[in-house]
Computed example of a mutant assay.
Amino acid sequence: MKRSECPISNCLDFVGDKWSLLIIRDIALDGKTTFGEFIESGEGIATNILSSRLKQLEAEGFIAKYPLEGKNRTGYYLTKKGIELVPIIAEMYLWGLKHGGSNTRKKFASALKRDKESAIQELTEELLKNAKALQKRSKK
């Protein structure tokens, strides 16, 4: 349910909680795809919250599932809607570095500082290519 017509409020209705953006960050910047990989992130998300956020992000169309080899496992990838958040995450990353955050993704930070627009475009293109491949795989 929309709280208001404000575009920022609308965006926050979908990804305004800490965990949703961190899951999207983990997929986009770290290549994480599984429940276990998300749990291992340094922020310490609880399993019940992670499960809830994954379901919510999938229901809202930010991520999609795909089957993994063996033991009925599932992976997640960003959809086009989720990939559209990459520029926001990049800006948040740069802001966080400027205001005391630790540079844990040196390659990404270096690319952003060198040429922000190109770095965002390259990451976006890579994620879109990956999403197309995984979408085909999940339909088999």
Results as ranks from 00 to 15, higher is better:
residue 12 L to C: 11
residue 97 L to V: 11
residue 8 I to L: 09
residue 89 I to R: 04
residue 92 M to V: 13
residue 107 K to T: 09
residue 81 K to V: 01
residue 123 L to Q: 01
residue 39 I to S: 00
residue 101 G to P: 12
residue 16 G to S: 12
residue 81 K to A: 01
residue 5 E to I: 13
residue 29 L to F: 15
residue 130 N to E: 08
residue 138 S to M: 00
residue 128 L to N: 04
residue 24 I to D: 01
residue 17 D to G: 09
residue 26 D to T: 01
residue 99 H to T: 13
residue 24 I to H: 03
residue 76 Y to E: 08
residue 64 A to V: 00
residue 125 E to R: 06
residue 91 E to T: 13
residue 91 E to V: 14
residue 62 F to G: 00
residue 126 E to L: 13
residue 130 N to G: 07
residue 64 A to F: 03
residue 33 T to N: 07
residue 70 G to N: 12
residue 138 S to C: 00
residue 102 S to D: 06
residue 20 S to R: 05
residue 36 G to P: 07
residue 130 N to H: 05
residue 124 T to G: 08
residue 64 A to L: 01
residue 132 K to T: 09
residue 36 G to W: 07
residue 22 L to F: 08
residue 103 N to H: 08
residue 62 F to P: 00
residue 99 H to P: 14
residue 87 P to C: 02
residue 9 S to T: 15
residue 40 E to V: 14
residue 56 Q to M: 08
residue 33 T to S: 06
residue 28 A to G: 02
residue 11 C to E: 15
residue 30 D to A: 06
residue 92 M to T: 10
residue 54 L to A: 00
residue 40 E to Q: 15
residue 27 I to T: 03
residue 5 E to Y: 12
residue 70 G to E: 11
residue 73 R to S: 02
residue 43 E to P: 13
residue 74 T to A: 01
residue 77 Y to P: 07
residue 128 L to C: 05
residue 46 A to V: 12
residue 54 L to N: 02
residue 28 A to C: 04
residue 4 S to D: 03
residue 63 I to S: 04
residue 72 N to F: 07
residue 139 K to E: 14
residue 103 N to G: 06
residue 105 R to Y: 13
residue 12 L to M: 13
residue 25 R to H: 10
residue 95 W to N: 13
residue 114 R to V: 14
residue 3 R to T: 15
residue 47 T to Y: 06
residue 64 A to T: 03
residue 110 S to F: 09
residue 115 D to M: 01
residue 120 I to E: 06
residue 10 N to D: 15
residue 71 K to D: 01
residue 90 A to S: 09
residue 79 T to D: 00
residue 119 A to I: 11
residue 6 C to T: 14
residue 74 T to M: 05
residue 21 L to N: 02
residue 32 K to H: 06
residue 131 A to T: 05
residue 53 R to S: 03
residue 55 K to P: 12
residue 139 K to A: 14
residue 59 A to L: 15
residue 121 Q to E: 11
residue 83 I to V: 05
residue 16 G to M: 13
residue 21 L to R: 03
residue 103 N to I: 10
residue 118 S to W: 00
residue 52 S to L: 12
residue 53 R to Y: 06
residue 47 T to S: 05
residue 5 E to D: 13
residue 44 G to P: 05
residue 12 L to P: 02
residue 65 K to M: 07
residue 28 A to F: 03
residue 106 K to V: 07
residue 37 E to D: 08
residue 20 S to N: 06
residue 50 L to E: 02
residue 99 H to M: 11
residue 26 D to G: 00
residue 79 T to R: 01
residue 23 I to P: 01
residue 64 A to R: 02
residue 122 E to L: 05
residue 85 L to K: 07
residue 26 D to L: 02
residue 130 N to L: 07
residue 34 T to M: 03
residue 9 S to C: 15
residue 10 N to V: 15
residue 52 S to D: 12
residue 43 E to Q: 14
residue 84 E to L: 12
residue 115 D to F: 03
residue 37 E to I: 04
residue 88 I to R: 10
residue 30 D to V: 09
